[in-house]
Amino acid sequence: MKIKDYIGIGILIIVIAAMPDLVGNDYYLGVLIFTAFNCLTCTGLCLLMGYTGQISIGHGAFIAIGAYSSAILTTKLGWSPWTAMGCGVLLAAITAVIVGIPTMRLKGHYLAMATLGFASIVHIVSVAAVDVTGGPSGISGIPRLQIFGFALNSDTRNFYFSWGVVVVGLYLAVNLIHSRVGRGLQAIHGSEDAASSLGVNIAVDKIKILVLSAIYASISGSLYAHYVLYIDPGPFDIMHSVLLVTMVAVGGLHNIWGAITGAVLLSLLPEFLSFLSEYLQGIGIRYQTDYDTLIYGSILLLIMLFLPEGLFEGLSRSLKSISGFRGKLAGRSSERAD
């Protein structure tokens, strides 16, 4: 790990520790908890998309697998939430291997479509298999998580726990990126042929990283189920998978901090838009939540057209260039003074 990453994680921990007091409102705390779930999935997705260069528009499916495993095993079979979550992770990993072996042979567009198709199949099954998943009406009565008898029964506790998981996930991911394996993955992104000639087992590595990102998604799904205590197929549709890709792409594909930035920004965007709509109503413009989709799309398009490295890289680069410019100005003025 580089020193920058330690600083980043340190800052993140401080912000997380201070957040509940700063927010002080259960509704916004809830929004931030959902943000944590998205961050967790996006961390995994960024490992797959940004570092290994394999696009997946199917991560909603792995979230669904985690969430439904937790929900079904705890409510119908009465298992403990932790065992259920473990089973969800195992199931997601096995699914990832099964889907991954043929899928990862595909590239680019084919891979995108195959994962999209996989996500739609999982969504269709979750709607249609009424006996198992409860169909469109979903499953309710999911128990809360307990850590050694300490129940996560308030939003503050859930907040700390879910963001704690994010920090652990992030730490592991950053460690992986700076390891030998991580450098191998980045080599795959650069050129599969070159990576393979340098001794990177690309087929196995691609599957491994898909499994890892599926595990991240599955854990985030399980946490979602145990926080909301009710699940239905709605949040796991294709649009959610697309939204996850959007988050990673907006923040920055090639940087895990970018993925986190994107996940936070886009998860908070609906709240920001509702603020904006109140403001706009004040000056006589009617804004409806229906426009949200349009705004998501426009942001994604603008970022891809003008800042293809994403907000994080783009902003840090422009900050650098501004400070460089200032330095130049300062240099010139001092020259003049001479």
Binding site: I55, V242, V245, G297, L301, L305
Partner: peptide, 14 residues
């Protein structure tokens, strides 16, 4: 490829 895929996805969302 990745960028073009995401661009067409963005257009479809819009």
């Amino acid at each position: 490829v990745l960028r073009l895929i995401i661009i067409t996805i963005a257009v479809s969302i819009i």
